[in-house]
Design a protein around this nucleic acid. Structure first.
Lengths: 187, 187
DNA sequence: ACCAGTGATGGCACTGAGTGCTATGGTGGG
DNA sequence: CCCACCATAGCACTCAGTGCCATCACTGGT
């Protein structure tokens, strides 16, 4: 999305984050964001397909990372540990690119529209996990369940990581969440 | 949502479903739906807060059913079985009200916008499960994981139920999905 | 039968998201 | 110096969603 001028794209994202934090997502127009970034309203929609996407830059990388992470895990490993290993890679990538993670999270949580979009992003990760599992001959129904359980673990781990302000590495949070889920379900 | 004239509401929902199936969600305007239902465009937005909601009528009942279902389960039961028992109730309610389930599902799957909204509906169920668990003194992190795992099972079961055209009762699909997940994760 | 109150509906006008099209200005290569 | 290319600006349009007010039907009271 918008690989042309990384500088202008960054200005748009920064301007949007400031304005959303100040006035709330629904009270900020695309024209205001563009103006603060020194661009025209029309150009905003050339960088981002819609107003919500300005807060989710780089999120396409996460589903892609799932595929690569799966490739790095031996096919002999059982499905669930494979999913968890892949989540480690995705988590590392997320943390690396999450400079404004906390501020972004606050803005997203404050707006139903943005929470809705965030679920779509999570669903894209889940779909990537599911297709990667199916390529390993995991039955479709199993793949769906594992993918959703994986994203549940991922979200819980990320929430914990943010709440603790990153004092623990994301891998620790992921392992803790996975263990928690296994203990809760495996009775 | 729109308790005034159930007849007009039904006409709007039927008209929307037909038009969406015929031309696709994004190629149908609210005015066209209203016209086919014999109402004005303005009235459409009095029955439904936005164009997507016309396909999700009655979905508010499902989160509410979660609370009631929890109340019917003894507090001595462990959290995960409690969640599964609650899902049985929700599933029964869903099946009961799902006259156009298959057609609705097709239309929803065909539109990214509608799929996004459907995830919001699932999230509402998950939130209801989470809060119900927290009221039973389940730690917040556990409740989040259980709620998401529960909705994963629910979605998988519902998908299977629709794919099999309802030949198996929803409870059977739910039990199968739950067992599947436990087997996959509990290693 | 008349009248007043209530509430659903219709019409109108407005804001803002998103989009197609065209003009313009800046920049690199010849 | 000129030309081609490309990001951007500007304009005009559709459509979602909303506030406001007029209208019409229905109801109860006299």
């Amino acid at each position: 999305m918008a690989r042309w001028d990384p500088d202008a794209e960054g200005r748009l994202r920064a301007a949007a984050l400031e304005l959303f934090q100040e006035h709330g997502f629904e009270n900020v127009t695309a024209a205001q964001i563009a103006e603060r970034a020194g661009l025209a309203r029309r150009s905003f929609f050339r960088y981002f397909p819609d107003k919500r996407e300005v807060l989710f830059a780089g999120s396409e990388q996460l589903p892609a990372a799932v595929g690569q992470a799966f490739a790095a895990v031996s096919p002999d490993v059982a499905p669930w540990p494979t999913v968890l290993a892949a989540l480690d890679s995705v988590g590392a990538l997320l943390v690396e690119h999450a400079t404004d993670a906390v501020r972004r999270r606050e803005v997203i949580q404050a707006s139903p529209e943005l929470r809705e979009r965030e679920r779509t992003k999570s669903a894209a990760i889940a779909l990537a996990i599911q297709t990667a599992l199916e390529q390993r001959a995991v039955p479709s129904a199993d793949a769906t369940l594992l993918a959703h359980a994986g994203t549940a673990v991922f979200q819980q781990a990320f929430t914990q990581w943010v709440d603790e302000a990153g004092r623990q590495p994301i891998e620790t949070c992921l392992a803790a969440a996975a263990e928690r889920l296994e203990r809760l379900i495996g009775i």
